[in-house]
């Protein structure tokens, strides 16, 4: 996954109607989002690659099952792109089932352009954020894994709000040793400040304590 791909979100548009596909693609393109069109659920599920940042705009055919089935397949594959459902024949029941199956939004055709574009952009932003969170989380985990046992203890106490002296007393070490551990773990975790350290690693320390 390269950063370049992430910078240019991709909308997957699934609709079996060519005119609808083309016009919506054109409309979505006007706000600078890239669009990849698919002619139907089978086509889409066969060719879809989940690495990209973006969203999926999925047409639900009248009877409603095929669109929902696609949703379920995507969920089973662990796809994290938000899915926006579109239908020309929306019922409350269909809408409820769509949300239950994990749809991010449910739009009725013909769809208002502002609403559609807003929804897509919001979905993309949400996805980008979630991917960034995921990435940061992974990096933090990698760095945290490099810490020694003692350094993890010290980190836990730092995050717990203890001063060096207090930590030294708690662990039966000299304040100088604690000072050294502290410097090492700041460098290993690439933290610039105490605030950043706490923000990035409090969660991990908590998980480590729980484990």
């Amino acid at each position: 996954m390269s950063d370049a791909v992430q910078l240019s979100p991709l909308i997957h548009l699934v609709d079996d109607d060519e005119a609808v596909r083309n016009s919506l693609a054109l409309l979505i393109g006007t706000v600078g989002l890239r669009v990849r069109t698919w002619t139907g659920p089978d086509d889409f599920l066969a060719g879809f690659d989940g690495d990209n940042v973006g969203a999926i705009l999925l047409d639900v055919r009248m009877p409603g099952t095929s669109g929902l089935a696609v949703l379920e397949t995507l969920a089973a594959r662990g796809v994290d792109q938000p899915v926006i459902m579109m239908t020309g024949h929306g019922t409350v029941d269909l809408c409820r089932r769509a949300f239950k199956s994990g749809a991010a939004e449910f739009l009725e055709k013909p769809v208002d352009d502002d609403l559609l574009l807003d929804t897509l952009q919001k979905a993309v932003r949400q996805h980008v954020r979630s991917r960034e969170r995921l990435r940061a989380d992974r990096i933090a985990r990698q760095r945290y894994a490099q810490l020694s046992e003692r350094e993890r203890e010290v980190l836990g106490l730092i995050i717990g709000g203890l001063t060096n002296k207090e930590i030294a007393r708690a662990l039966g070490l000299s304040p100088r040793t604690v000072e050294t551990h502290r410097a090492n773990l700041f460098s290993k975790l690439e933290a610039d400040s105490l605030a950043q350290l706490i923000r990035s690693y409090a969660q991990l320390v908590e998980e480590g304590d729980a484990a």
């Binding site: 016009s23 054109l26 006007t30 013909p110 352009d113």
Partner: peptide, 28 residues
């Protein structure tokens, strides 16, 4: 009625999307 709604919805969706897209393209 449902069939009619669907049959009409598709072109209406396309018309709305196309005209709005055109509007936006001309506004650029």
């Amino acid at each position: 009625a449902a069939g009619m709604a669907h049959e009409l919805n598709q072109p209406l969706t396309a018309i709305l999307a196309s005209t709005r897209a055109a509007e936006r393209l001309l506004r650029d």
